[in-house]
């Protein structure tokens, strides 16, 4: 007996991998999410050819909305060329053959993990977030049956108690990323594990925000220009991280920076987390104090592939 399977070719897969029925099912869930901003809509998430936790929710959302004329930007940790961003961009290049870009301004769809680009997004753009745990109340109450009830009853006391206890214990709200927000005055939502630095960007953002959690089988959305308020107290207002130094490469201030360890005796520098933003500024001739330092050479040029242009 022979078991060797017939080998279907890769072209046997549909445009953007998912079949049209599945895409339609996901788009219906997204429309419901847009109609009820911040509400987590259950959807029949599919197994994808990358593992759960690698962005299967974001990939399914992008696959459902992408068309042949779209231009896709894929980032992870703010960077276009981190390994998983490369891998997911390659997936859509292969299965959808769409144009891809590193330029925030050129993209019609931006799929992201953990960051929002520094450049303000426009009405004609969509940002897709990869979400690991969509439920902002999950770490306070592990049961889905309970948290759904709490959302239904708008019972968010537990969350406020948690934030209050943080302040009582530490003097600060000890949540630095995935900082909970209230959307349109109704649902408390997890903005995905972006640093709270990015929270002000999703308030009244002109672009449509779509959030996909594949393993947890949820999508949710924030329509353009929707109020998104980070939870806080009158005497402890929400505040974002601030960095006391500018970007070491492009001297940008008021942006989110990554700390890069340069040696094993305390040498470090801070550089833009949004690599495209940093490159643009350097192309304009803006340089930071470390731009010419030999220890930072790998960051400022050399290894980075040239930014792609729209094809």
């Amino acid at each position: 007996m022979t078991y060797a399977p017939q080998t279907p070719s890769e072209s046997a897969y549909n445009f953007a991998y998912l079949d049209e029925q599945t895409k339609r099912m996901i788009r219906r869930a997204l429309l419901k999410g847009i109609a009820i901003p911040g509400y987590q809509v259950p959807f029949a998430s599919r197994e994808m050819p990358m593992p759960y936790g690698w962005g299967t929710g974001g990939v399914q959302v992008t696959a459902s909305i992408i068309g042949k004329d779209d231009c896709l930007k894929m980032i992870d940790q703010g960077s276009d060329d981190t390994t998983n961003a490369v891998s997911l961009r390659g997936f859509f290049k292969k299965t959808a053959g769409v144009a891809t870009t590193f330029e925030t301004a050129d993209a019609s769809i931006i799929q992201t993990r953990h960051r929002i680009p520094e450049k303000p997004l426009r009405e004609d753009q969509v940002i897709v977030f990869q979400v690991p745990i969509p439920e902002p109340l999950r770490f306070l109450e592990p049961r889905e049956t309970e948290t759904r009830k709490m959302h239904g009853l708008e019972d968010y006391g537990l969350m406020h108690v948690k934030l209050y206890e943080d302040i009582a214990k530490n003097g600060h709200i000890a949540t630095t990323y995935a900082y909970p927000v209230k959307v349109n005055g109704r649902y408390v939502m997890d903005p995905s594990p972006t640093p709270k630095f990015d929270n002000p960007k999703i308030d009244r953002m002109p672009a449509l925000q779509l959030y996909g959690a594949g393993r947890e089988q949820r999508v949710y959305a924030v329509p353009p220009y929707t109020d998104v308020k980070s939870l806080d107290f009158e005497d402890y207002p929400f505040e974002v991280q601030s960095f006391d130094k500018p970007c070491g490469l492009c001297s940008a201030e008021g942006v989110y920076l990554d700390e890069v360890i340069l040696d094993d005796h305390g040498g470090r520098m801070f550089v833009c987390s949004d690599t495209n933003h940093c490159e643009e500024r350097r192309a304009q001739g803006l340089t930071g104090p470390m731009a010419a330092a030999p220890t930072a050479a790998q960051l400022s040029d050399g290894n980075e592939p040239k930014p792609e242009t729209r094809t």
Binding site: G53, Q77, T83, N84, R113, R115, P193, T194, D258, E259
Partner: peptide
């Protein structure tokens, strides 16, 4: 996977 933004 990289988590350095949140770790920061």
């Amino acid at each position: 996977l990289p988590h350095y933004v949140d770790f920061q």
